[in-house]
């Protein structure tokens, strides 16, 4: 993979410093944050996603586990239905239930490619990809930090209002507000960076 993997906020913090948007954080505090944080090669954990859609009174909840590594994002949803999503910025694979692992032909569908790449760059903190697609603002909160991404390029800007990331050591929450005011919140938990290499089992998961 051509993108280098870093923790989300190391890059974002560096990024926002360069962008000069981190007005509420002193340079020294940022240096501290950067110094404290080592970029894990592998980040794994669990997620709980809550999606509020206008049409539905009860929010849609789903949960599962994920792995983020130099092989891309492995997103395995367990509830309410089993599905797997593998994305590495060049391709997008999806499996629903026991169905076949299908590849979304991103070359023929540039929209999907752009969306998946942008989301992936958020998870990975891919600097250039993020900078070219978003306005980045860092807001430091009392018990952690908050980063606000506003999409500026087509077609993200057409669909999404803002993406807000919150966290302390690692990213803990991701919130996406769409143009139609639907809202998706993903809460991450049980984050682990060790072992710092993908296990054989994990490599098999990607390789499916």
């Amino acid at each position: 993979m051509r993108l280098t993997l870093k923790t989300v906020f190391v890059i974002l913090v560096l990024l926002s410093t360069r962008a000069g948007a981190a007005q509420e954080t002193t340079g020294e505090a940022l240096q501290d944050v950067v110094a404290r944080l080592a970029a894990p090669d592998v980040l794994r954990g669990r997620f709980t996603q809550t999606r509020k859609i206008q049409l539905i009174s009860r929010p849609l909840e789903s949960s599962g586990r994920f792995i983020l590594s130099d092989m891309g994002l492995y997103w395995q949803q367990e509830q309410p239905l089993a599905s797997v999503l593998i994305a590495d910025g060049e391709r997008l694979l999806q499996q629903v239930d026991d169905g076949p692992l299908e590849s979304v032909d991103v070359a023929k569908n540039p929209m999907v490619l752009t969306f998946s790449k942008s989301f992936l760059s958020i998870f990975e903190g891919n600097e250039s990809e993020l900078r070219s697609n978003f306005d980045v603002a860092l807001v430091s909160a009392a018990d952690g930090w908050e980063i606000r991404l506003t999409p500026v390029t087509y077609p993200m800007a057409e669909a999404i209002n803002a993406i807000i990331l919150r966290g302390r050591d690692y990213i803990e929450e991701l919130n996406v507000t769409s143009r139609s005011l639907d809202e998706t919140t993903i809460v991450f938990s049980d984050l682990q960076t060790l072992p710092d290499q993908l296990t054989e089992h994990e490599i098999e998961l990607y390789a499916r």
């Binding site: 996603q49 999606r51 859609i53 206008q54 849609l60 999503l85 998946s116 989301f119 998706t184």
Partner: peptide, 10 residues
């Protein structure tokens, strides 16, 4: 509908 990349859900 549940996909983290899902933007069509709206």
């Amino acid at each position: 509908l549940f996909s983290p990349f899902g933007v069509a859900a709206s």
